[in-house]
Measured scan of single mutants.
Amino acid sequence: TEKEKEVKRLAKERGLSPDQVRELAQRAGFSPDQAKQIADEFA
C-alpha cells in the first residue's frame, strides 16, 4: 500500500532499527501484527 511504502521509505532514510520501524508503522495506523511484518523486513 501507499502508506506501507511511505513507512518503509522513512525507515530506510532514517536508518531505523526494526523496533523503531514497528513503532513508526503503528503510529501510521497499522495493526501490531502488520507493523511487526513490516519491521521484520528490516531485521
Rank of each mutant, 00 (worst) to 15 (best):
T1V: 13
T1A: 13
T1D: 13
T1L: 14
T1F: 14
T1W: 14
T1Y: 14
E2W: 13
E2Q: 12
E2K: 09
E2C: 12
E2P: 08
E2N: 11
K3V: 11
K3A: 13
E4I: 15
E4G: 11
E4N: 06
E4T: 13
K5L: 11
K5T: 11
K5M: 12
K5D: 14
E6S: 06
E6Y: 12
E6Q: 10
E6I: 12
E6K: 06
V7A: 02
V7G: 02
V7S: 01
K8Y: 03
K8I: 15
K8F: 03
K8D: 05
K8V: 12
R9F: 03
R9G: 05
R9N: 09
L10M: 11
L10K: 13
L10I: 15
L10Q: 15
L10R: 12
L10T: 14
L10E: 15
A11G: 15
A11C: 05
A11R: 00
K12V: 08
K12F: 06
K12W: 08
K12R: 12
K12H: 12
K12G: 09
K12T: 12
K12Y: 08
K12M: 06
E13V: 09
E13M: 07
E13G: 05
E13P: 00
R14C: 15
R14D: 10
G15S: 08
G15A: 07
G15H: 10
G15N: 12
G15D: 07
G15L: 06
G15V: 04
L16H: 02
L16W: 05
L16C: 07
S17Q: 08
S17F: 06
S17N: 14
P18D: 05
P18N: 07
P18A: 12
P18V: 12
P18G: 10
P18H: 14
D19G: 08
D19N: 10
D19Y: 03
D19R: 10
D19Q: 13
D19S: 13
Q20T: 03
Q20M: 08
Q20R: 05
Q20N: 04
Q20F: 04
Q20P: 00
V21D: 02
V21S: 01
V21G: 00
V21T: 08
R22D: 07
R22I: 15
R22M: 15
R22A: 13
E23S: 07
E23K: 06
E23T: 05
E23L: 07
E23N: 07
E23F: 02
L24T: 04
L24G: 02
L24P: 02
L24I: 07
L24Q: 04
L24K: 02
A25N: 00
A25Q: 01
Q26K: 10
Q26I: 15
Q26W: 02
Q26D: 05
Q26V: 15
R27Y: 07
R27H: 12
R27Q: 15
R27F: 08
R27E: 15
R27N: 14
A28Q: 10
A28Y: 15
A28F: 15
A28N: 09
G29H: 01
G29S: 01
G29C: 01
G29P: 00
F30N: 00
F30G: 01
F30R: 01
F30E: 01
S31E: 06
S31A: 08
S31I: 02
S31T: 14
P32N: 06
P32D: 12
P32C: 09
P32H: 05
P32R: 03
D33G: 10
D33T: 13
D33N: 09
D33L: 08
D33R: 04
Q34K: 15
Q34E: 14
Q34I: 12
Q34C: 06
Q34N: 05
Q34Y: 10
Q34D: 09
A35F: 00
A35Q: 03
A35C: 05
A35S: 07
A35L: 02
A35T: 03
A35Y: 00
K36Q: 15
K36Y: 09
K36V: 09
K36D: 11
Q37H: 11
Q37T: 11
Q37I: 13
I38L: 09
I38H: 01
I38P: 00
I38S: 00
I38N: 02
A39K: 02
A39E: 03
A39Y: 03
A39F: 02
A39W: 02
D40G: 05
D40E: 14
E41P: 02
E41K: 06
F42P: 02
F42I: 13
F42S: 05
F42V: 13
F42Y: 15
F42M: 11
A43M: 13
A43P: 04
A43T: 10
A43L: 13
A43D: 10
A43R: 11
A43V: 13
